[in-house]
Amino acid sequence: MLIEQIRLEGGCALGLRFEMQKYPLLVIRAEKGFLMCGYLNVNAAETLGDTAAKVKGVQSFEDMLKAQVVEVTQLARELGIKPGMTGRETLEKMF
Rank of each mutant, 00 (worst) to 15 (best):
G38Q: 10
A13Q: 04
K32P: 01
A76M: 07
A45G: 07
T47F: 10
E19I: 11
K32A: 13
E78T: 07
L91S: 03
S60E: 07
L26R: 06
Q68L: 12
T47I: 13
Y23C: 01
A44M: 11
E89V: 12
P24N: 10
K66F: 04
D63R: 06
A44L: 13
V70R: 03
G33T: 06
E92Q: 13
A13E: 01
R77C: 10
Q5A: 14
G11P: 08
Q74R: 15
L8R: 08
K32Q: 12
Q21I: 11
L26D: 04
G11R: 14
Y23M: 09
R29M: 12
A53S: 05
A45Y: 06
G38N: 11
V58S: 01
V70A: 00
V70P: 00
A53R: 05
L25K: 13
F95Y: 13
A13D: 02
E9P: 03
T86D: 05
M36Y: 06
L65P: 01
E4N: 12
L14Q: 09
E4P: 00
Q21N: 12
K22T: 12
F18D: 07
Q5C: 01
Q74M: 06
G80I: 10
G49H: 12
F34Q: 12
T86A: 08
F34P: 00
A13Y: 03
K82L: 09
T90L: 09
R88I: 09
Q59F: 06
A76I: 11
P24Y: 04
L26K: 06
K93W: 00
L26M: 12
V55H: 01
A53V: 02
E71P: 06
Q74I: 11
K32D: 01
L16Q: 11
L2W: 07
Q5W: 02
T73R: 08
E9R: 15
G15P: 07
T47M: 13
L40R: 06
N41K: 05
L16D: 02
T47R: 14
G57W: 00
L40E: 10
Q68W: 03
A76F: 07
Q59D: 03
K54Y: 03
L16S: 10
E71M: 13
V58N: 02
G57N: 04
L40N: 07
F34W: 10
G15L: 10
E71L: 14
P83H: 05
E19H: 08
V72H: 00
Q59Y: 04
P83F: 02
L79F: 06
E62K: 05
D63C: 03
V70G: 02
T86C: 05
N43P: 00
N41G: 00
L2I: 14
A52S: 09
M1G: 14
V70I: 15
M94D: 07
E62R: 05
K66D: 04
S60L: 06
V27P: 00
V58P: 01
T51Q: 04
Q21W: 11
K56M: 08
I28C: 07
M20R: 14
Y39T: 05
